[in-house]
Design a protein around this nucleic acid. Structure first.
Ligand SMILES: NC(=O)c1ccc[n+]([C@@H]2O[C@H](COP(=O)([O-])OP(=O)(O)OC[C@H]3O[C@@H](n4cnc5c(N)ncnc54)[C@H](O)[C@@H]3O)[C@@H](O)[C@H]2O)c1
Ligand SMILES: NC(=O)c1ccc[n+]([C@@H]2O[C@H](COP(=O)([O-])OP(=O)(O)OC[C@H]3O[C@@H](n4cnc5c(N)ncnc54)[C@H](O)[C@@H]3O)[C@@H](O)[C@H]2O)c1
Lengths: 222, 222
DNA sequence: ATTCTGCTGTTAATTAAATAACAGCGCAAA
DNA sequence: TTTGCGCTGTTATTTAATTAACAGCAGAAT
């Protein structure tokens, strides 16, 4: 009987990497591979093999000497740590380009993580299905979130509506929010929030590209 | 004459935050605000005011006592550090849902970061325009990347084509890659790579939601 | 056999990032 | 004026994350 709360104090970065390991391992499994070495995982993830072994140590998994790790076993173990046994229901608010990309990408990929509803204020979108996911009017948000016991909301509405939607998600009892809008939000304690902005990532790349070019051709001394 | 290479050793996290500060500051400017305190920036970004002041110290910016930071000045300074003076050209490969969302979102948002081309293997998409960005056949990738001096490529093609596209971007002389595909890639030294996966973020949220619920109703003994 | 090799698992050391602590300053109140 | 307050800027400390170091082992090479 795994007391999964035991894993509650894993480093945040380790949690992220476990999810990434699983993604990579699933691809390896598709290729018919059955075992994998720490340095192979490391290469895929652009990290060191020590990092991988350390993460696996933290979750108490042991590989076979000279044979590596059993991919299926490791996938299952990561699942037992990262996933909720009962599964978690997710909703997406804002069925535009980004919302659709997300639905298409996530749907069916993870057993324990299901997008069970999309919401949109555009009356034409309510009542339709997208990749098998029912789309509802925003008016029904509260009702459906409670009914379907949705725990996580992804926000992909236009920036101006972010605050309002976030407030309503919180009101409806959601426990986690993933905000893709460029408008940062505030949530009460006890609600887990992540925000991600592609421009930030892009600017970071641009910066390091710039820096590395400047290092090559150093600024001419006046 | 700012020798911007001077900032080459800023912590990675600081670079990310500078970009986020700017995003937030631009919003404040729109609201007619002219000055801002460190604790206000901090609140928007869900960090501490010390963190903010420390970052600003690293880039050598001083606010006015009791008045805070001049928003416009700070935006300009961040720009002088993060942006390239000549600007950087970007291409997106794969004009599906995600590619379109990105073009729409990024286009026109940053002065020094321009999406100058989209590529798609679908012949129907070649020759069209999306949000003012010309869309070309993938066959012309090499040619156009060189011609327009594109430095950064964003990959949003189906996973199976990731490797091929990445190789061709590298071949064409690109210096930075942002891979949104769930298939991790390898690039030669000197090319800056970032990969991002929304499922990882979602699973992380799901994990911490789960953990926090388990803490509330601890596992029954026995 | 026995030596070598290449991997795992773990502890120790290092580095990076965040936080705490505090000096200084200028306006505001008294 | 002088006291307090609320802010900045910087140094010191702590914590988190990564990397290095190495012991141990199973099979391969000789
Ligand atoms: N974080 C990132 O990296 C990133 C990248 C791309 C886009 N974005 C942002 O994501 C959001 C969506 O982008 P998009 O390209 O999909 O835009 P879009 O215009 O294609 O889609 C927005 C959708 O939201 C719906 N909507 C509008 N108001 C609503 C409301 N109050 N409640 C529910 N639905 C509502 C619209 O009907 C539309 O279907 C935008 O805010 C955009 O800036 C963020
Ligand atoms: N990282 C994430 O969080 C995330 C989220 C959503 C989607 N995705 C991934 O992003 C990719 C795109 O998603 P989408 O929803 O936009 O898919 P989509 O099918 O809507 O778009 C894919 C586009 O790529 C084009 N294409 C196919 N092969 C190509 C090639 N060889 N060269 C150039 N273009 C080609 C297609 O014509 C299509 O226009 C997928 O790999 C998906 O898994 C990632």
């Amino acid at each position: 009987m795994t007391d999964s709360a035991f894993f509650g104090h894993l480093p945040h970065k380790t949690i992220e990497r476990l999810s990434q390991y699983r993604r990579a391992l699933l691809l390896c499994l598709d290729n018919g591979q059955s075992h994998i070495f720490s340095h192979e995982i490391a290469k895929i993830q652009h990290i060191t093999s020590v990092q991988v072994r350390r993460d696996l140590m933290l979750i108490g998994y042991s590989g076979t000497l000279r044979k590596g790790y059993n991919i299926q076993e490791l996938i299952d173990l990561i699942g037992s740590i990262v996933d909720s046994e009962e599964g978690i229901n997710v909703a997406i608010v804002g069925m535009g380009n980004l919302g659709r990309a997300l639905i298409k990408y996530i749907s069916g990929k993870r057993h324990k993580l299901t997008i069970v509803a999309g919401f949109d204020s555009n009356p034409e979108k309510a009542g339709t299905k997208m990749n098998g996911v029912d789309c509802y009017s925003t008016e029904k948000m509260d009702e459906i979130i409670r009914e379907k016991e949705i725990k996580i909301g992804i926000i992909t509405v236009p920036a101006v509506n972010t605050r309002e939607i976030a407030a309503r998600l919180v009101e409806a009892g959601i426990k986690g929010i993933l905000n893709y809008t460029p408008k940062p939000i505030e949530v009460p304690d006890g609600i887990y929030l992540e925000e991600y902005d592609m421009i930030t990532t892009l600017e970071k790349i641009a910066f390091f590209v710039k820096v590395s070019e400047e290092e090559k051709e150093p600024t001419p001394e006046k």
